[in-house]
Design a protein around this nucleic acid. Structure first.
Lengths: 202, 202
DNA sequence: TAAATAAAATTAACACTGTTAACTTAATAA
DNA sequence: TTATTAAGTTAACAGTGTTAATTTTATTTA
């Protein structure tokens, strides 16, 4: 039985090899500019070999997306230990922004890239994606339950907070902040979010 | 001198013909999936003819972006007549969201699409883009001057407000709101923004 | 160990893409 | 009417994702 074990292990290693090469190129060049032939070149295999391990290009993409979400979920898990809901909410926001600025290409394909959600249907896909969202939603609900937020409706409050942090980092990542002083952009990003935070809490 | 006049007019008409065909396809299919050959097919010209009127594919794209900004600027101009700064600010936010929901492909290429800003350098490009931003910035400054906002810093306040509306519509446009009840998404979008608005004003 | 089978990887090919160069057709000027 | 300029087309290049057929390699069976 050890031969089939090795086989599955080798299959896993090959998938990892492809994924790793793809990751580097996605991060540097983006999804569209990264071709399967370039990935194949990098790992010194023929382009079609990739199809023996991944159904198509988007499947590689989705696996990277899952990795991104598991990284973010990991960082969120630390914040979830904070007992006071409003402090927890603030920590989640800061973690979110820091993750986006440090892993902008991951963030890009998780929250911005077009058509990434096309084939996300089953509950199994998008799993850690939903979990990260639940961290935020539960925290907002806790805040409301403990009367720490001005808003009473969990849905609108969750979206408002998420939209705030997503808005600011996605404008930055997609290069729409040219009208702000370049040297202090990151400061402004954090400052604008924490100023909003001060206003939404009681 | 009337022949050269006609020539320049015909050139303009041809550009408009291409742009119009491209617009429809961009709006329905997006930038990447719209090929020059398909555009050429639609207007019944050969693909290379397009190059006699536009430098490359991105130049068509940028002209569409300019059109989008001029539409938005037009709607903003109406709001700018409102004398009370805080009312004006609220109107701008609502106009922004409505524009984004009604013209999502325009919005997409104006504020989300990757690399769209690559060749935007000169002050002449991006002109109405900057003007729309100035509407928001000036209004925020007016609000602060009249002590109608809790925030004192124009930069962070402007970004915070913009990020709020951009965040919410871009999550919607790029299909990241599957966890919200589908039938009431648009309501939640407007509700979350106006709830934030109530909190940032004095 | 040698032949048969299964798995892994490759080459060739298809139908696309944006873009350039060379050629043909139509319109203007001499 | 001929020479010149402009407009439009065809052919071609280098690239893309993907499929089918083929070869190479590894494993199993006789």
């Amino acid at each position: 039985m050890s031969i089939s074990e090795r086989k599955t292990r080798e299959k896993q290693e090959m998938k990892a090899l492809i994924l790793n090469a793809a990751k580097d190129m996605f991060i540097q060049e983006g999804f569209e500019k990264t071709s399967l032939r370039k990935i194949a070149d990098k790992i010194e295999y023929s382009p079609t070999t990739i199809y023996l391990y991944y159904k198509d290009k988007t499947e590689i993409f989705h696996e990277l997306m899952e990795i991104g979400f598991s990284i973010l979920l990991n960082r969120f898990s630390e914040d979830m230990k904070i007992v006071n809901p409003i402090d927890r909410l603030y920590a989640l926001g800061e973690t979110y922004i820091t993750f986006a600025l440090e892993n902008s290409e991951y963030y890009d394909l998780m929250f911005i890239t077009k058509n990434a959600m096309d084939k996300v249907h089953t509950a199994d896909d998008w799993c850690s994606g939903k979990k990260t969202f639940m961290c935020l939603q539960n925290t907002v609900e806790d805040c409301i339950a403990q009367n720490q937020l001005k808003s009473k409706d969990p849905n609108t409050a969750t979206l408002a907070f998420w939209a705030q942090v997503h808005g600011v980092v996605s404008l930055y990542i997609r290069d729409r902040m040219k009208m702000f002083p370049k040297e202090s952009i990151k400061d402004i990003i954090y400052a604008s979010t924490s100023s909003i935070f001060e206003m939404i809490k009681k």
